[in-house]
Amino acid sequence: MENLKPFIGRLMLISTVICFMMVLMGGIFFLVSYGHDPVPWHKYTSYPTIPTTYKTIGDDLKNPTPLGIVQLGLLVLLLTQVARVALTAWLFLKARDKTFAIISFFVLLVLLYCAIWRF
């Protein structure tokens, strides 16, 4: 089991760097253009008008906006959680640890349903 940890650690490191760079880049671009505007408080006291989906985040890529890049970074963070369970399940399977492969695949299925399919 000990040799599973470096693989998962490496996945977390890569995705953390990608997420951090995307969020930082989008954030800086946004602050350069709108940093001195007042905070749109009214937006955060009511229900959101534009629901987000994978499609709307994907559409934003064709004509990237600073906050669209941030949103993509947040999506990387969400998908990292799914990826690390998938990697753990696969590594347990490879190590022929059936009980933990089944447990991990079960967690993965619920996660896929909640984080992706329902999304």
Binding site: G26, K43, Y44, P48, T49, I50, P51, T52, T53, L67, G68, V70, Q71, L74, L75, L78, R118, F119
Partner: peptide
């Protein structure tokens, strides 16, 4: 995310 509550 899908309901738009995760604001960038």
């Amino acid at each position: 995310f899908s309901r738009g509550y995760i604001d960038p």
